[in-house]
């Protein structure tokens, strides 16, 4: 991923790149409903909530893995969610955040500020920007 960033950009805190606000879903909702909500909001991850507190994380990949393992779409998401939350503080430079994400092999990371979850960063955010160069060429044909 480092290829995408120049040295100057790499020092910028993740605060600059993250999305403020996190979409959450109750842990007792079904896998099917989680899929519907991901489509509705155009996102590929959801924070999993218990009494409005984040207790897990669910990505498209968790769902595909779950289905492949034989879980039915009517089962509860708490069965397939990741219980280990990967997060960092909002002041960490993006270069370091990308390292953390690579080490944990995740595509999404939760962002904390003053001890509270405030946002999320996804690799897709960077890829979307990079795609632009390519698309400009395609569209000018």
């Amino acid at each position: 991923m480092k290829l995408f960033l120049n040295v100057e950009k790499a020092r910028i805190p993740i605060k600059q790149f993250m999305t403020r606000g996190i979409m959450g879903i109750d842990k007792n909702e079904t896998i099917k409903n989680a899929c519907k909500k991901m489509i509705e909001f155009g996102i590929s991850s959801l924070a999993v909530l218990e009494n409005e507190k984040i207790v897990g994380f669910l990505t498209k990949k968790d769902i595909i893995d779950g289905i492949a393992k034989g879980f039915s779409v009517d089962e509860k998401i708490k069965k397939i969610m990741s219980k280990n939350l990967v997060f960092c503080d909002s002041s960490v430079p993006i270069e370091e955040v990308l390292n953390i994400m690579a080490n944990f092999q995740v595509r999404h990371i939760l962002i904390k500020e003053k001890g509270e979850f405030i946002g999320i960063f996804s690799l897709k955010d960077i890829i979307d920007l990079q795609k632009f160069n390519l698309e400009t060429q395609i569209s000018s044909d």
């Binding site: 959450g24 879903i25 909500k37 909001f41 509270e116």
Partner: peptide, 10 residues
């Protein structure tokens, strides 16, 4: 407010 529940009525 930083976490928004997807079950909110659209």
């Amino acid at each position: 407010e930083r976490i928004y529940n997807v079950e909110s009525e659209k």
